[in-house]
Structures are given as C-alpha cells and as structure tokens.
Amino acid sequence: MSKLVAGREKDHAFADALIRAGLVDPAVVAERIEMVDVHALVQKRLRDWIATYLPAT
C-alpha cells in the first residue's frame, strides 16, 4: 500500500507486475485501500487505479 500511496509510476508498474503474476489479489488491495488513512483524493486515485483490475459490477 505504501508504494501505491506514493503514486510514483515505478511503484504502480511494480504493483501491476505483482497483480499480473498472480502474486497479489486485486480484491485484497481494494479492501486495504479502504483501511488506509490518507487524503480523500489519494484514496480516490487508488480506487480508480485498482478498479481497472477488478471485474465490472
């Protein structure tokens, strides 16, 4: 989560690689985003990012 909160391109690329390799479950990341105490705009950025990995509802 700290990598994603930082918001650097290299950190998003790293998280993307972990998800694509099946080492990280995007649903778990989505749950953890809700637990992070960050500014509302950062939380929205994180939600928007992880939504691209979650099945459409």
Rank of each mutant, 00 (worst) to 15 (best):
M1V: 12
M1Y: 12
K3P: 00
K3M: 11
V5F: 04
V5P: 00
A6M: 10
A6P: 04
A6S: 14
E9C: 08
K10W: 12
D11G: 01
A13T: 10
A13L: 15
F14W: 15
A15C: 11
A15P: 02
A17N: 11
L18F: 08
R20F: 04
A21V: 05
A21E: 08
G22W: 02
L23E: 09
V24I: 08
A27G: 10
A27E: 15
V28W: 07
V29D: 04
A30N: 08
A30L: 06
E31P: 05
I33F: 05
I33L: 05
E34C: 01
M35F: 09
M35A: 14
D37H: 07
D37A: 11
V38N: 01
V38K: 06
V38W: 01
H39G: 11
H39T: 08
H39K: 13
H39P: 06
L41G: 13
L41I: 13
Q43S: 09
Q43N: 08
K44N: 09
R45K: 13
R45L: 07
L46G: 01
L46F: 00
D48F: 07
A51L: 09
T52V: 11
T52G: 13
T52P: 00
Y53E: 01
Y53V: 03
P55Q: 03
P55E: 05
T57D: 15
